[in-house]
């Protein structure tokens, strides 16, 4: 069961954003996925996209803490990638005879649904933030995503003092929150507060 133990280690590393774990996963599994995609009417670039999306699915899953490794990582990634690629082919109306495979598969339907929903949310957020324009985008990213404090931000963005920066940040934040909650309430009928 040593392999199993190793895989658990790697997943723990992945959950903790350990770059070594990410590299290991990437190195061990990318070629297999590339072969899958290229053999089924795709290109290397498309293989890269599909594989990275599958890595995000795995990442989200280990982050949520509910992931139980009941199959090999390889099998899981392969199953997810196959699903993603079939879907992409369908969207592109590109024809392929992908169905045949010797690799074992695990059901990933639920994970895929979760992933799609999250993807949608994140894409919405990305669009909303970039829709704010500058300096709001950089200001909010610096504060909320890069967790810089107001003094640093004021210095970097050329505000005379932290209070000015805070003032500007507040205005940007209100705009973003408005967009976010409009979408959130529309997208989630349960918005129960």
């Amino acid at each position: 069961m040593k392999a199993d133990h190793n895989e658990k280690e790697i997943l723990r590393g992945l959950a903790a954003n350990d770059r070594k774990a990410i590299e290991t996963l990437y190195r061990d599994h990318f070629n297999m996925i590339q072969t899958l995609v290229i053999n089924n009417n795709g290109s290397s670039e498309e293989a890269k996209d599909v594989f990275q999306e599958a890595m995000i699915v795995l990442y989200e899953k280990v982050r949520s803490g509910t992931f139980e490794l009941n199959c090999q990582i390889k099998t899981y990634l392969y199953s997810v990638c196959r699903r993603l690629w079939l879907k992409r082919l369908q969207q592109l109306s590109r024809f392929s005879n992908t169905a045949e495979t010797d690799e074992p598969l695990v059901p990933v339907d639920e994970d895929m649904d979760d992933h799609e929903k999250r993807n949608e949310e994140f894409e919405m957020m990305e669009k909303a933030i970039s829709g704010l324009g500058e300096p709001c985008r950089s200001l909010l990213e610096a504060y909320y995503l890069q967790q810089q404090n107001m003094q640093e931000i004021a210095a970097n963005f050329g505000y005379t003092n932290a209070d000015n920066a805070k003032n500007q940040k507040y205005k940007c934040l209100m705009r973003l929150k408005k967009i976010f909650f409009t979408h959130y309430k529309n997208g989630n009928g349960d918005g129960g507060y």
């Binding site: 990410i22 990437y26 990275q52 990442y59 999250r118 994140f122 990305e126 995503l145």
Partner: peptide, 17 residues
């Protein structure tokens, strides 16, 4: 926060690649 992590993870993936 989750959005930030997602973005960061994606850029790490690209770097690793």
């Amino acid at each position: 926060n989750r959005f930030g992590e997602w973005k960061k993870f994606r850029s790490v993936l690209n770097e690793v690649h």
